[in-house]
Amino acid sequence: MIVLHAVFPLDPATRDEALGLIEDLVEHSRKEDGMIDYRAATDVSDPNVVRFFEQYEDAAAFKSHSQTDHFQEFEERLPNLLAGEPEVLQFEVESATELEL
């Protein structure tokens, strides 16, 4: 499984535009083959920071996602919506166990 955690600092002046684009990206991405989970959320400490949590069955699913029209549109428009550099971490996970709280 491939897991991504991405952090995007949004420009407050373009926040609404960015959130609309992110909402569209999430909606389409969740329908992709090989997608386990795809979520975006604003940070509770800073509403101009959006965090993505993505889970893919394998590297092929992640590669396929990066070639979709909705991802390409997001990637093309992203630089004009940011207030700083994004941070993206990729994890290769062999197993995951759900914990009870």
Rank of each mutant, 00 (worst) to 15 (best):
D43C: 02
F52T: 03
G34K: 04
T68A: 06
E73L: 09
S45Q: 11
P86S: 04
P86Y: 06
L25Y: 01
F52I: 09
E92C: 08
N48Y: 10
G34I: 07
D33P: 03
V49Q: 12
K31L: 14
A40P: 03
E27Y: 11
K31D: 14
T68F: 01
L82E: 01
E87R: 12
E73K: 12
S64F: 02
A83G: 07
R39T: 08
L82M: 13
K63S: 13
K63N: 12
A59E: 15
D43Q: 03
F74D: 04
E76Q: 10
L89W: 05
D24C: 02
N48I: 08
I36K: 10
A60P: 02
L81Q: 01
F71L: 10
L81F: 04
F91I: 07
A60K: 12
A61E: 05
T68K: 02
E92K: 15
E87C: 05
E92M: 11
Q67S: 13
E92A: 12
M35E: 01
S29K: 08
D43S: 05
D43N: 10
R77P: 00
E76L: 03
E32R: 07
H28S: 09
E57C: 03
R30A: 11
V88T: 15
I36P: 03
A41H: 09
G84I: 13
S64L: 05
E75A: 14
F52M: 15
A83H: 01
S66K: 13
Q55P: 00
F71C: 11
D24L: 07
E73T: 14
V49F: 01
F91R: 06
P79N: 05
G84P: 07
P86H: 06
E92R: 14
R39M: 10
Y56C: 11
R77F: 00
M35L: 06
L78I: 05
F74P: 03
F74G: 00
E87Q: 13
D69T: 14
D37K: 11
Y38Q: 03
Y56R: 07
E76H: 06
S66W: 02
E57D: 12
Q67K: 12
F53Y: 14
E27R: 15
E73M: 05
L78G: 00
D37F: 05
F53E: 13
A61T: 05
L78S: 11
Q90S: 07
D37R: 14
D33Y: 01
A59Q: 15
R77Y: 01
G34A: 12
Q55N: 11
K31A: 15
E57F: 01
D69I: 09
E87M: 10
H65T: 04
E27H: 13
D24Q: 10
D37T: 10
Q72T: 15
T42P: 00
N80T: 14
L78E: 04
S64Y: 01
V88D: 09
S29F: 03
T68S: 07
H65E: 02
L81S: 00
G84S: 09
H28N: 15
V26Q: 04
V26D: 04
F71P: 04
Q55M: 12
M35S: 08
H70S: 10
S64C: 03
E27I: 08
G84K: 10
E73G: 00
E87W: 04
Q90Y: 00
L25Q: 03
Q55S: 11
D33F: 03
V50E: 02
L78H: 01
D69E: 14
D43I: 01
E54Q: 13
